[in-house]
Amino acid sequence: MTRYAEPNGKQDLQCDCAGGIPSPCHGPASPALHHGLPVPDAARTGGLRAVLHDQRGAILRFLAARSGSADLAQDLFQELWLRLDNADQGPVANPVAYLMRAANNLMLDYRRGELRAWARDAAWLVSDNPAMQAPESLADPAPAADDMIAARQEAALMRRAIATLPPGARRALTLHRFDGLAHAEVAAVMGISRSGVEKHIAVAMKHLRRAVMDWGEASSTASVSQSDMQEPRHD
């Protein structure tokens, strides 16, 4: 059975875990893995791990629906367990919502990683923009440089997507998201109404979401074929 809601169902979620995995429990960690499944130890009864264990079915179901794969859902659940272990945390108002949110963020990180791996391998992107061929970044295999390349590739993808926006939508989006102007200010600069600005931005966002969805298709296909290639061959 699935039970996502808080028992009293009324508490607001207080935590802010935008940056990935939040940190719910106090005390030293001793992960107890049992048949690959986390089991809460006595010291943590009532903590987030207990909730995670209790909500295992619901969270796995959510992750399977989010990822489209039961195996990936299991992996992400383990990851979630491990991260809770390393985290140092304060009290959480709504632990179930907190964990769902953390699971959701993990999934997003995973997709972003796929996208990055795909973008990094896509030669057409590198040749597209000379600025991205900075020799120091290509020569240095350190993780920081790797991140930098990934960030540039992501920026290159976004740049291409934004370049194909209708001019009005692109301008409104640029002024609003990159120049930090409020809708009213964008309206003044562009000489159009506020609702016109909102329409432009809605068009831009729709366009960008479609683009990201296309990349998502391409990148998940690419990662599947890549893992196929890594299968050991027995001759």
């Binding site: 976004m158 120049d179 298709e217």
Partner: peptide, 22 residues
């Protein structure tokens, strides 16, 4: 789920790439 990934990632990428994209 794919659509949701796209929506959430588009927001994240816009925010993270803003300095490079401006």
């Amino acid at each position: 789920a794919r659509a949701y990934d796209a929506v959430a990632l588009a927001e994240t990428l816009l925010d993270d790439c803003a300095p490079a994209l401006a």
